[in-house]
Amino acid sequence: MNAWRRALQGLPLIVAVLALWELVGLTGWVNPKVLPPPHAVAARWWEYLAPPQPYDPEAGSRLAWLLSGELVQDAAGSLYRVLAGFVLGAALAVPVGLLMGASSRVYGLCNPLLQILRPIPPIAYIPLSILWFGLGNPPAIFLIAIGAFFPVLMNTIAGVRSVDGIFLRAAQNLGAGRLTIFRRVILPASMPYVLTGMRVGIGTAFIVVIVAEMIAVNNGLGFRILEAREYFWSDKIIAGMLSIGLIGLAIDQGMSLINNHLLRWHRGLEH
């Protein structure tokens, strides 16, 4: 409830920006081809979202019909790639990060290589990924996995290293062996960091998916706004951008909810 009230606090500014934007169109200061007014964007948005065909019970269920709009299809494609790439990247980063955080030998072995690779932006892998995987989902998922890998990795390492020594001593004192300490102490104690890394990682994944779709895929939100440019549909470009923003916001809020639930024991959540 409180969150809603806080969101409502920002409403006046949003309304003001929309009003100004509409005014700019109405007065003819700006060519509406370049910056279409909000009502035109909204109309285009609705067209983008709505099912293209009238409902036909022969063709399938009502739900399938509702989801047959272009925007829904694009969003589903983008989300699928984000999820697949993120899961792949995080599934590699978490075990490597745990090992690197727990063992200084593994850290010493892996860190130099990773430090060389880490500054390479995931986008710089685009040419190589197209050479390796062709076009379509595989190169996009590969790029997203790289984008998600490093934030999760770095935070996991930091998480393991930040585990308070007193927990380790307490666990040893209670008779726990190395494996038990790793599984029941180090793993949960580093969880706040790992989850922060995942939140950053999925954000990066969402950036990378848009770029990957502009280059290697022929559907998805990123592809659609680039396609719209070719037809000079600025209203559709803006509608697509706002969709991207709202979906990104939803992903981040979803991650935050999951984090709060998993970390309900955590001190930082005390208010």
């Binding site: 007193i166 004192n173 024991w265």
Partner: peptide, 20 residues
């Protein structure tokens, strides 16, 4: 030679596992 449950320790900082 090392920590053992036969010598149970209570710490000033409690050292309870906060996730349990």
């Amino acid at each position: 030679t090392g920590p053992s449950p036969e010598r149970g320790m209570v710490f000033q900082e409690y050292a309870l596992f906060p996730w349990m």
